[in-house]
Design a protein around this nucleic acid. Sequence first.
DNA 1: CTTGCTGCAAAAGTTTTGCACACGT
DNA 2: ACGTGTGCAAAACTTTTGCAGCAAG
Lengths: 159, 159
Amino acid sequence: MKALANDKDMILPVCAIFRRFLKTQGLKFTTERALILDAILAKEEVFEADELLNEMRAAEHRVSKATIYRTLKHLMEANIITEVLIDSKQAHYRTIFGREPKGHLVCVETGKIVEFPVTELSAVADKIAKEHGFEPVSHRFVIYGVSPEAQKHPQADRG
Amino acid sequence: MKALANDKDMILPVCAIFRRFLKTQGLKFTTERALILDAILAKEEVFEADELLNEMRAAEHRVSKATIYRTLKHLMEANIITEVLIDSKQAHYRTIFGREPKGHLVCVETGKIVEFPVTELSAVADKIAKEHGFEPVSHRFVIYGVSPEAQKHPQADRG
DNA sequence: CTTGCTGCAAAAGTTTTGCACACGT
DNA sequence: ACGTGTGCAAAACTTTTGCAGCAAG
């Protein structure tokens, strides 16, 4: 089997998509926006704005917090990323362009997040929306539980 | 059919549950906590801390912001309410004691929130958790879409 | 009485915004 | 050149916390 399609190949098409989106909005494709997009595409999992900022600083790609937040907004409008609501403290994001929709299984002890496919659930979600007269747009499924690791290493720290 | 069981009947048992919970934790059942619990039980739908504060002030039940947040925490620990993640700006809560679990259908245009039963989805969620070795605890289903009202009255305000 | 609780205001945390200068088109 | 974007720091916003007086058990 040919294994030519790796993650790197994804970067060009998404850049083009974002660039086109920006153009339609009369916006510019700047160095900073390209750097942020690259950083995001390198992430396999859910990420936070803060995390992105730190990683980019570590990589000597100095981009301000403000620019990160502003770019995340544009990327959401371009349907390249989406918000994932894990907790009420801070927004989490996830790339959706070129990736399958996923649900998230969150360990209530360790905070570990595991993705799972939502094919069957998506169909149910669309059905439910339509039953209520809603035109379905998107959905989020988050399941909370105790991960195998946490079950093995009980903390016993319950007050 | 006898229609004696209205929402008011729910208040006493929940108070008792909360009181008992507080006692087990060495905490006190104060006037403020009782007022907050009453205000919450009067709500049929999802609510926010801020909303609760305003409503209680309007009803001349002066309770501080701090006390509301502190009490919401206790009510969550007592499994009387739960957090519902609708957006990343602010926490939403919902009473779970004595009520069926629900999913939430959110209109992306108007913000309107409609609840729907999650019986079938809950079973799927538990199955998924177990498939990943997780002990299921809870789950949240949020579906975003365009409500019938918003479809009838298009805003046409897309940039 | 002892211990925890309340309200206030300040702190903490994330996200947004105003402004002067810099860059993409 | 024009108009938009950037970084900075301050603002805005929700939620948390420290403290002095107060109330529940």
